[in-house]
């Protein structure tokens, strides 16, 4: 019996990148939920049963950014994403930003352009499996 696919929520404002990630994740057997704003992500979370991982960019459309999303996620009452591993995939990586994400409980921080999608996906797989 095939296990139900793991769900990944992808938050990314750039359309082409969002599409590429969706394709790759789908190829790797994940179910992908996409959002380009924090608001959209919250909406998506409402309609979905659960998520197993979050692929999060920092700069997003709308007023709120990735950091705001993580903060919201980790609040009580958001049981859908409170304990979900968050993988930050961003092109900006100032020490403050990284520290902030990590202190809020992000799993890992990737500089987008330095990695193949495949590598990041492998990391996600490992993390979920653990």
């Amino acid at each position: 019996m095939r296990a139900s696919p793991k769900v990944v929520l992808v938050l990314e404002d750039e359309k082409p990148l969002l599409e590429a990630v969706r394709l790759s994740l789908t190829k790797n057997g994940f179910k992908v939920i996409t959002a380009r704003t924090v608001e959209e992500a919250k909406e998506q979370l409402c309609t979905t049963t659960h998520v197993d991982a979050i692929w999060l960019d920092h700069y997003l459309l709308g007023r709120e950014n990735g950091l705001d999303f993580v903060a919201w996620c980790r609040e009580d009452g958001n049981n859908k994403c409170k304990l979900v591993p968050i993988f930050v995939v961003s092109n900006t990586a100032t020490p403050e930003k990284v520290a902030s994400y990590m202190s809020l409980g992000a799993e890992k921080y990737f500089v987008k352009s330095n990695h193949k999608m495949g590598d990041i996906i492998e990391e996600i797989k490992k993390s979920i499996a653990a």
């Binding site: 750039e14 990148l17 590429a20 394709l23 092109n91 900006t92 987008k112 352009s113």
Partner: peptide, 24 residues
């Protein structure tokens, strides 16, 4: 911001090329 703006298109190229090379 500059790094973000510069890296975003580069990431795009990177990942689409990756997908092509992977035969996606």
């Amino acid at each position: 911001l500059a790094s973000h703006q510069l890296r975003t298109p580069l990431s795009s190229i990177n990942w689409y090329t990756e997908m092509l090379l992977d035969g996606d």
